[in-house]
């Protein structure tokens, strides 16, 4: 794994673990596929708790909100979900990219 990506993943996983150990309910989101120019590479992670506190990033901003909303359902029913997002040109522009991309994010509960 690329060193900076590995360090970022360590950070997110360590935090998720810490939160869970402290009794908080946590979901973990992983970028599993990307097409075109997506802002964050495959393997990027985001951990979120039921207070919508999160660490890490799956898109550099454009789909974080949607992922966090879905994560609440995942925490609720425990069923993992595979989410598909198309990053539109406008959204992509907002995060500093000139062209769009597609991202698939896997969201699971930390049991």
């Amino acid at each position: 794994m690329n060193e900076s990506l590995a360090a970022a993943a360590d950070d997110v996983l360590a935090r998720a673990h810490e939160w869970r150990e402290a009794g908080r309910k946590v979901a973990l989101a992983t970028v599993v596929t990307t097409w075109g120019s997506s802002p964050r590479p495959v393997g990027s992670l985001l951990a979120v708790d039921t207070e919508s506190q999160f660490v890490g990033s799956v898109s550099g901003g454009c789909i974080e909100g949607a992922v966090i909303r879905e994560a609440m359902d995942v925490i609720e029913d425990g069923k993992p979900r595979l989410l598909d997002f198309g990053v539109t040109d406008t959204q992509a522009w907002d995060v500093g990219l000139a062209c769009g991309g597609k991202i698939q994010v896997f969201v699971e509960r930390l049991d």
């Binding site: 794994m1 690329n2 990506l5 590995a6 993943a9 992983t30 599993v32 495959v42 393997g43 896997f106």
Partner: peptide, 22 residues
């Protein structure tokens, strides 16, 4: 030295994330 990989088998699709030491 890949970060990730995918594998399809009878059990479904597996997403592999490699954690190599520095």
């Amino acid at each position: 030295d890949k970060s990730t990989s995918m594998l399809d088998n009878a059990g479904g699709t597996w997403f592999l994330q490699v954690f190599n030491p520095g």
